[in-house]
Design a protein around this nucleic acid. Structure first.
Length: 835
RNA sequence: GCGGGUGUGGCGGAAUGGUAGACGCCGGGGACUUAAAAUCCCCUGAGCUUUGCUCGUGCGGGUUCGAGUCCCGCCACCCGCACCA
């Protein structure tokens, strides 16, 4: 027995090399074992691994290692979501090629990930910016193009006139470009779209099958897809035109008192010659789109002077241009029913339009006055001719039926989901494999010319898309006529890259994006782990892309991720000086109850615990922590205390505690004593129970509970005398801890004289007979309050337990001679005496 | 506004309707040491008239022999979406 310390600085690297050399985590798709695909959302190679990554990948790693121990052939790959804006920004700021910057980052981050000891199959690593990868992506794009799932149309975009580029909505801040600060313009550009709306119904219904997804994410996707059903019909207008409107409340049609159209509605645009109309349309465009602005925005309207004829009453209703009507939902026009829609109510109040009740609590309340807001709830239809007395649902069906019979409208389902605009006027992305032919329009690049590679010799000295102004790249010939033609210079949205990468992880043939048979072996992903921020876009696009490929016969799986887990953020206290400037954790120290700067002792305010971010300076660098405490301590911290779906507050005290526990386990592991003999039943029992409990906790992803179990068994084992049972407990702890602290476990395993890697060893067997206690603690209650506890043999009869309870001195004192009315006995648990 | 979540010691958090606070962190006391670090042991929800008693899981009710857990009504905070007709 030696009392040396575990030295991660030399042990970690040694075991990481041992895993790599033995190929311990290389997935064999020809294996006979059941398969398990464990995947964490692959990182963007921004430069450094941060604590959020460490937490995400540690969780996946524990699962992957555990599944391997349980006899699964595990696929646990890693790659790089390598296209995107930051690389281009770096190119502009640092005069470095985006590819060079990206690859340097990948090298650095890969080294960091290896230093944490993740059980990854690095043989399947790829970056989405590899021409092989994006070439296959281009092939998939062409598959979808040929299947009619891709189309081109003119669409409005945010245009930065200084950077000469399109901005995503989140890159527009207060109406200005986030980089240039220039006033952003709306511009119409021809853009490529993927027909995700073809799959709206399917994507919505598929959510029901995703039992192992968080309810929250399913609801967010459901709302995003936004199915609604109602009636689309046309009003006859006084100018002879027709005005199609969409409503989900056809039952309230007798309450309509006006029509409203969007500012960019064709009828409004047609009136644009009138300066007053033009001014109003301009006014509508100004309004901000932030939540707060919309909340307070006043309903504004402009009476066009045109009237619409009510389909049932024949009444003439005014048609307004209104700022609250959206052109891209429904038909861009609505019928206004002020009594039963809050927006219409506000509008009608402002412009003194009639507000009629057409839904009441019951049929007798026909004339009940309207309050100061619209009544959107259920009820009975009143003041509505043939609809009177019907329920809301009956009236909806009746009006839709009459409209359809009369040929002036039809029941319709409308979706909030829009088609996916995938064109980006950027260099660092997958070139869209299309050639614009003067004679044949947009033509697919012939398959034998894929990949369409990005040119290397580009510069970012001028604003705009480097592909567009490259001297030769876009010039090519039409594949049909052979005449000169131009390449598409837009690249694909980066979300396209992450929409099928899991298929490429499952199989990597040279001549195809994937092999359907290999995909069938691994998919769906058994556990997909990542941040909640991808609840909608990435996860919806990946579901769509998988379904689209299934619909054209490329694969058999429709849902890529069987189970989804969204982990919480890593947070940290913030520190600020009096002037509000932020300080990093290593610039401050505790001073009594408060905090001061290390530099000059100036008082520091410790603020809220929030997500680690550069702007708040509350980041902690994983490398520095690993250097101080080793990889296992950091991994252990990531799994301890907080449930994985909640935020994890980082603390210096916490990581020190984890570092201490690594050493404590190491000391215990060294006490494995081959010469020891004898049984220790209670300890053996605890070890067997821990084998079962830790397994259950890991499978439920309750890592914090698994950690607590390991602490408990550790404590019990430390206290026990040497025995064969104690040796068993020590070996058990090595196995139970090995998915979480793999370096320590390997070192201890080897020191105890075992051959091979503990990573390759199976999960320990438990003896079911040892799970059952032979003695139990019984709680004795009087009137529901605890009075005493006693130990009884497991399975003691109710009569015996009752007798034991009544024999207790404490119980008798509490009873104080009162008459016993009833005694409740729960075997092996408690006795409750009621007086 | 709509949808969802959370609320338990100083802190992170445990708890199939059955002994609330497992486990960890912080804190206090002690042992070892010339001393420190490391390590080990004990205490650590609040209060009280302290062999013990009372109170205690955001608040107010209810069901039950028994409620952190189930039901009804509130409050606070967090997240997502949002003029979607």
């Amino acid at each position: 027995m030696t009392d040396n310390r575990f030295d991660p600085s030399q042990a970690d690297g040694r075991w990481q090399r041992a895993w790599e050399e033995s190929g311990a985590f290389t997935a064999d798709s020809d294996s006979e074992k059941p398969k398990s695909f464990i995947l964490e959302m692959f990182p963007y190679p921004s430069g450094r691994i941060h604590m959020g990554h460490v937490r995400n990948y540690t969780m996946g790693d524990v699962l992957a290692r555990y599944k391997k121990m349980r006899g699964f052939e595990v696929l646990h790959p890693m790659g790089w979501d390598a296209f995107g804006m930051p690389a281009e920004n770096a190119a502009m700021e640092k005069k470095v090629h985006p590819g060079e910057w990206t690859h340097a980052n990948i090298e650095g981050m890969k080294k960091q990930l290896k230093g944490i000891g993740f059980a990854l199959d690095w043989t399947r690593e790829f970056a989405t910016c590899d021409p092989e990868y994006y070439g296959h992506e281009q092939a998939l794009f062409l598959d979808m193009f040929e299947a009619g799932l891709v189309y081109r149309r003119s669409s409005e975009v945010n245009w930065d006139p200084v950077d000469m580029t399109v901005l995503a909505n989140e890159q527009v801040i207060d109406g200005k470009g986030w980089r240039s600060g220039a006033e952003v313009e709306k511009r119409k550009l021809d853009q490529w779209f993927l027909k995700i709306t073809d799959f709206a119904e399917d994507l919505l219904e598929g959510l029901d099958e995703l039992k192992d997804w968080p309810e929250k994410v399913r609801l967010m996707q459901e709302n995003w897809i936004g199915k609604s059903s109602g009636l689309e019909f046309s009003f006859d207008l006084s100018n002879g035109e027709k005005l199609p409107v969409y409503t989900t409340r056809p039952d309230t049609i007798f309450g309509a008192s006006f029509c409203a159209i969007a500012a960019d509605h064709p009828i409004a645009q047609g009136l644009g010659d009138d300066p007053a109309v033009a001014a109003f349309i301009e006014e509508c465009k100004k309004g901000g789109t932030t939540a707060a602005e919309l909340e307070t925005a006043e309903k504004l309207g402009f009476d066009t002077g045109i009237t619409a004829q009510h389909p049932f009453t024949g009444e003439a209703m005014p048609v307004f241009i209104a700022n609250f009507v959206l052109m891209d939902y429904g038909t861009g026009a609505v019928m206004g029913v002020p009594g039963h829609d809050q927006r219409d109510f506000e509008f009608a109040t402002k412009y003194k339009l009639p507000i009629t009740r057409v839904v009441a609590k019951d049929a007798s309340e026909t004339d009940a006055p309207m309050g100061d807001e619209a009544e959107a709830g259920d009820g009975v239809i009143v003041n509505s001719d043939f609809l009177d007395g019907k329920s809301v649902d009956e009236a909806k069906a009746e009006v839709i039926a009459r409209a359809e019979n009369g040929g002036w409208g039809e029941g319709k389902t409308v979706w909030r989901l829009r088609d996916w605009g995938i064109s980006r006027q950027r260099y660092w992305g997958t070139p869209i494999p299309i050639i614009h032919s003067p004679d044949h329009g947009p033509v697919p690049v012939p398959r034998d010319q894929l990949p369409v590679k990005l040119p290397e010799d580009i510069d970012f000295d001028e604003p705009g898309n480097p592909l567009e102004r490259h001297p030769t790249w876009k010039h090519t010939t039409c594949p049909i006529s052979g005449k000169p033609a131009l390449r598409e210079t837009d690249t694909l949205d980066t979300f396209a890259n992450s929409s099928w990468y899991f298929l490429r992880f499952a199989s990597q043939p040279d001549n195809a994006p994937f092999d359907p048979e290999e995909v069938a072996k691994w998919l769906p992903v058994q556990h997909y782990i990542g941040g909640i921020e991808h609840a909608i876009l990435h996860l919806l696009y990946a579901r769509f892309w998988t379904r689209a490929l299934a619909s054209i016969g490329k694969i058999d799986v429709k849902e890529p991720f069987a189970a989804l887990f969204t982990q919480g953020m890593v947070t940290h206290e913030t520190y600020a000086l009096g002037d509000g400037s932020w300080l990093s954790p290593d610039e401050v120290r505790k001073d009594g109850a408060g905090w001061v700067t290390i530099a000059d002792g100036a008082p520091v305010t410790a603020g809220r615990v929030v997500k680690m971010s550069k702007s708040k300076k509350n980041v902690v660098d994983p490398d520095a922590i690993i250097a101080d405490y080793g990889a296992d301590a950091v991994r252990w911290f990531m799994l301890s205390d907080s449930p994985p779906e909640r935020d994890l507050p980082w603390s210096q005290d916490g990581i020190e505690g984890c570092g201490r526990f690594v050493q404590r386990l190491w000391r215990l592991f060294q006490q494995f004593d081959p010469a020891a003999s004898g049984e220790d039943q209670p300890l053996a029992r605890k070890a067997h129970q821990a084998i079962v409990a830790v397994a259950e906790d890991i499978e439920a992803l309750s890592f914090n509970k698994a950690v607590a179990r390991i602490y408990e068994l550790t404590g019990a084992t430390e206290k026990a005398e040497a025995s064969e049972s104690r040796n068993f407990a020590i070996r058990t702890l090595m196995h139970l801890a090995s998915p979480m602290m793999p370096h320590l476990a390997e070192e201890a395993w080897a020191c105890a004289g075992n051959d091979g890697l503990i990573a390759d060893a199976p999960w320990p067997e438990h003896d079911p007979a040892m799970l059952v206690e032979d003695e139990v603690t019984i709680a004795i209650q009087h009137k529901g309050k605890l009075r005493d506890t006693l130990t009884a043999p497991k399975g003691a009869s109710k009569e015996d337990l009752e007798a034991l309870a009544l024999a207790s001195e404490k119980v008798q004192r509490s009873l104080d001679g009162a008459e016993i009315r009833k005694v409740i006995v729960v075997p092996d648990r408690l006795v409750n005496i009621v007086t």
